[in-house]
Design a protein around this nucleic acid. Sequence first.
RNA 1: GCGCCAGUAGCUCAGUUGGAUAGAGCAACAGCCUUCUAAGCUGUGGGUCGGGGGUUCGAUUCCCUCCUGGCGCGCCA
Length: 547
Amino acid sequence: MSTADQLRAELARAARALGAPPDVAPILERPRDPAFGDWTSNIAMVLARPLGRKPRDVAESLVQSLDLAAGGIRSTEIAGPGFINFRLETGTLAGVLPVILKQDAAFGRSVVGAGKKVNVEFVSANPTGPLHVGHGRQAALGDAISALLEVTGWSVSREFYYNDAGVQIANLALSTQARVRDLAGEATDVPEGGYHGEYIREIAERYVETYPADAHGDDLDQLRRFSVQELRKEQDRDLQAFGVQFQTYFLESSLYENGAVDRTVRALVDGGKTYEKDGALWLCTTAYGDDKDRVMRKSDGTFTYFVPDVAYHVTKWERGFARAINVQGADHHSTVTRVRAGLQAIGMGIPEGYPDYVLHQMVTVMKAGEEVKISKRAGSYVTVRDLIDEVGRDAVRYFFLMRKGDSQLVFDVDLARSQSEENPIYYLQMQHARMCGIFRNGGIAAHEISADGVDLSVLGEPEEQELVKALADYPALLVNAAQALEPHRLAGYLQETAAKASKWYHKHHVLDEPEPIFKARLVLARATQVVLRNGLAILGVDAPERM
RNA sequence: GCGCCAGUAGCUCAGUUGGAUAGAGCAACAGCCUUCUAAGCUGUGGGUCGGGGGUUCGAUUCCCUCCUGGCGCGCCA
């Protein structure tokens, strides 16, 4: 039990002794200003109304009945309208450091997810072109969310879903065919709805090399398979360069082949929420909050995309995922209601909010002071690969993760490149490298640093106390960030913690200090390095030992 | 017209279930390299938290309304 939990429990006990409602949960948080202590609680103000007393009176009574020793409290004060501020003993504060050293790479891990299975689906780009910057944002977000869930005790499976057989893929095959015929000297137009990118020409060239017998591109089926395969390979190279790995690649075509789509349609019809109109089959999505009903089966007999989508999510449930999280661009937000409606209409006991969606706003790319229009069909994009090549994998990941997904993101390529020396990611990595530099200069093996027998109460400098508090907050921050599915909170935390580490580093020395100080500070340096490294790992960013 | 997301310092953005004097980076200005990495540190200036109303001890945060911007509103995916 952490000291904060002990304090919280003690506050709850004192509050109930005063006659507070039994469900009262005392809020204990870090005050904005360190002058207000190490922890602060607003509980007296919350209780003032139910108890019919003035906030400061309630605070007074609470403080008198608190068992201060139980929480390692040095002093309390009542401030402002009724805040109770707590100051901890220095030794209590530093109690987290031995824990960090002992747990090392495991520090911050928790079991709140209880090992339950969660499916995180992201990127899910159809194999009709290279991954663009929006996919990059999804890759960074999805991978970091997955990592956050893993360290908080969930059993995570990363999944990539793609369509390998639909209308878009047929257009892809026709586009490649047109380029193959170009190569054969027959001027051919790319078909309506086809793809114009330079990469199609390159695929056509490889096709002709691979299948010299079909130099005129007559075998459309072979063209389709080859194009899909080439583009999938290309996307996988990009994902690998970005450091993202998926456990499962799920093909939309499999849902047709194994009958899942038909079963889903039957289940929906049996559920009684469908009707025929104008030769089409409709689903009453309005019964689940949609603004109009949606067509499932068109009058030409084919299904609209959302039917396989529902079938797909049924498989997630059937595969035992208690929770499913989809990371998508906000331009897909209209599918949220539809997919959830379909799952409800089947009536197989899937929870109402299934699946969760993390929708991110659009990325616009600026280059040479102008917005680059991203359009697959016009063949103009900035790819993930472009960004990685220009500013580096770590910077691209961090850039996408340091802002919350709800905000639109302007990615100025020139700025990102020219700023590379000012980039916040270097600052963060630098603080980590500096801690490692201390160990290196001292000829100390980092993993052998131990807090055993070290008097940590000598860490009394303000910069030390601030840094120690930040390190102690790490596990709770991970739980909050994971629960909110918001990796940017971790990015912000690391930035603040690195700043505190930097202030401490510049003001106080570790090596060549008197032994008790040296030993204690070495522990603090190691603990700082461990937390920075662990946090960066979750964001998928390297923590170099020297720069 | 309807729905979703946003509007916070010159710029890019944080602000964790409502808390005390609203923060960071960049940019600007002034200092700091015989000191474990100056890719850094210290300090200064900079705000109608889009406007208005409401809820309460207390609102950037919750509710209503209006304004502005982005996205989506198909028998496309």
